[in-house]
């Protein structure tokens, strides 16, 4: 793989995941590079979202899940002993498929994360809120109504708000689970631009079943099929000269 020149942020080693008897991830070995966008593609049910959720241990909340193997984040095993999941999730933020702002004001939504992690001072919260909303390119749209309910925003605005909410905890990695699948084309392109800007500061892993989106925004692309990582390479390589037949079939639209 070409990624050796770039700094590795996250690595999985022989990662298996079982939902009860179902073997959902089969020995995934994969590197995520720092300040790059990595896209996970594959037909639905291929395990790409499940894989994403193993990276910040969001699968912990599902009782029947069993995970083996390692997820190494900056040299520390995410599933190791003494890991503080709350700190992990602060460091590895997540944006979900459909926008999920909390039923509170825009301000409180953004301040939620910092407050979780103990930030109480009003002045600093104000600063974080403005900085996060600015980074998520939504500050100008909402600065006059920070105290209004977040649920009053449009879908696209809500999703950018959720990205801002995620940035407010100062993560190092952003996980995005099909962040535009519930949005209209205009909102989608705004979010894509935003994602592209964010890679200057963050490492981003994005699940998408929109191949054009993967091609447009990502530096690396991983193709998943039936719980296996079939091919992982630079986006250019995947889309121009895939090495595995299944990848080519998927990209050229023969299935999925």
């Amino acid at each position: 793989m070409k990624g050796n020149t770039e700094i590795q942020k996250l690595r999985t080693e022989d990662l298996h995941l079982y939902y009860g008897d179902v073997h959902a991830l089969k020995g995934i070995n994969m590197d995520v590079h720092s300040r790059c966008i990595t896209a996970l593609i594959g037909p639905s049910g291929c395990g790409k979202s499940t894989f994403l959720k193993t990276l910040n241990r969001m699968n912990d909340t599902i009782p029947s899940v069993k995970i083996t193997g390692k997820v190494i984040l900056d040299g520390e095993d995410v599933y190791g002993k003494n890991v503080d999941v709350t700190v992990l999730r602060k460091k590895v933020g997540m944006v979900f498929q459909s926008p999920n702002p909390f039923p509170m004001s825009i301000y409180d939504n953004i301040a939620y994360g910092p407050r979780v992690h103990g930030q109480k001072r009003r002045h600093e919260l104000d600063e974080i809120v403005e900085r996060s909303l600015t980074s998520a390119a939504i500050w100008d749209e909402v600065k006059d109504r920070l105290k209004k309910p977040a649920l009053g925003l449009s879908g696209g605005q809500q999703q950018r708000l959720c990205i801002a909410r995620c940035l407010a905890t100062q993560p190092e990695i952003l996980l995005m689970d099909e962040p535009t699948s519930a949005l209209d084309p205009i909102s989608t392109s705004k979010i894509e631009e935003l994602i592209y800007d964010l890679k200057k500061e963050y490492s981003i892993v994005i699940v998408t079943h929109n191949m054009q989106q993967a091609a447009r925004v990502s530096d690396y692309t991983a193709f998943f099929l039936l719980g296996e990582l079939i091919e992982y390479d630079t986006t250019n390589a995947i889309f121009s000269s895939p090495k595995v037949q299944q990848t080519e079939n998927y990209i050229t639209g023969r299935f999925g």
């Binding site: 720092s34 900056d74 520390e76 995410v78 003494n82 890991v83 700190v87 460091k91």
Partner: peptide, 13 residues
């Protein structure tokens, strides 16, 4: 990348 935070818990459990 020196500012990266450790995810190891300060307190156990």
């Amino acid at each position: 990348m020196s500012e990266t935070q450790s995810i190891i818990a300060v307190r156990k459990g």
